[in-house]
Amino acid sequence: MKIVKFIYATTLVLLISSCKNDAIPKPDAFLSLEYPTATYASYTHPNCNFKFNKNTNATIKPEEACSFKIDYPKMKASIYMNYRPVNNNLMLLLKDAQKLTYNHTIKADDIQESVFEHPEKKVYGMFYRVIGDAATNVQFYATDSTKNFVVGTLYFYAKPNFDSIYPATKYIEDDMKKIMETLEWTNN
C-alpha cells in the first residue's frame, strides 16, 4: 500500500510541476498610433491679409496681432504662424526665415528643402523638413514678394526624439503642405 501511495504522490508531483509555462519573449512591434482623418475648412484670419484651409481637428489660438498657433492638443503640438507685411524688407524676412531653419543644423541629420510656387495665386515659398532630434521638424515660408510674408513652424511640447514623434510629424506635415497649397492673399 505504501508503494501505491508513493506512486500516486510521485505522479501527482510530476503532473503539477510539469504544467509550467515557459517564458516566451514578446515579438518586436511598432507603436500603433491612429489619428483622425483630416478634413479641411477655409480659415481667414481677421487681422491678416491671407486665408488658407486648415485641419478641422486643430484649433486656432490667437497670439499677437498677426500671429497665432494652430493647436493639436492630442499630439501636444502646434504650428506657429507669423505674418509680416513686406515693406522693402523682403530680403531681411527671407534671411530670418532661413536662419530659423538652419539654426537646427547642430541637431539635424538632414534638412530637405522643397521650392513651392503657385503663380496663379502669387504664392512663392520654401518648405523644409528637418530630419533628426531638432526642436522643429517642419517649417515653411510663403510670400507674394511685394506685400505679404508668412512663416509656419511646427513645435512639439516634448523633448525632441525624431523616431517617437515621426507619425505625428508626418500627419501635421501634410496639414502644413495643405496650408501652403491653399494659401491666398486677401489684399491682392
Rank of each mutant, 00 (worst) to 15 (best):
C48V: 01
G132T: 05
Y80A: 13
S32M: 14
E173Q: 09
Y80G: 02
V115Y: 00
K121N: 03
D163M: 14
K61V: 07
N187Q: 08
P62E: 10
T101K: 07
N47V: 09
V150L: 13
D163S: 10
V13S: 07
F149E: 01
E184F: 01
T39Q: 11
K107R: 12
D71T: 05
Y155T: 05
Y72C: 01
K99A: 14
N187M: 08
K122Y: 10
M1S: 04
D109W: 03
L183A: 01
N88Y: 11
P167H: 03
T182Y: 06
F127R: 00
L14Q: 00
I111G: 06
K107T: 14
F68Q: 02
E63N: 13
T37D: 09
T146S: 14
I106S: 08
P62D: 08
K177H: 04
I60E: 03
K2W: 12
N87Y: 04
S78M: 13
L15W: 08
Y35R: 03
S164R: 08
K26I: 13
Q112I: 15
Y124R: 02
L90E: 00
I7D: 08
F116C: 05
M176K: 07
I16S: 13
N87C: 00
G132P: 00
D22Y: 15
V138R: 00
L154K: 04
A108F: 10
D28L: 15
T56C: 02
N161Y: 12
L90K: 05
I179W: 02
N53D: 14
A158E: 10
L31P: 01
K95N: 14
M126Q: 10
Y157L: 12
Y141G: 02
S67Y: 03
I16Y: 09
A97H: 03
K74L: 15
K177N: 07
Y102L: 11
Y124C: 02
L94D: 03
Q98R: 13
A142I: 05
P36S: 11
D133E: 05
K121V: 02
L183V: 06
P27Y: 07
K122Q: 12
F116N: 03
A168M: 10
M1D: 08
Y83I: 11
E63R: 12
S145I: 12
D175A: 03
T105I: 15
Y141S: 01
K178A: 09
S32T: 10
Y72G: 02
D175S: 09
Y157K: 04
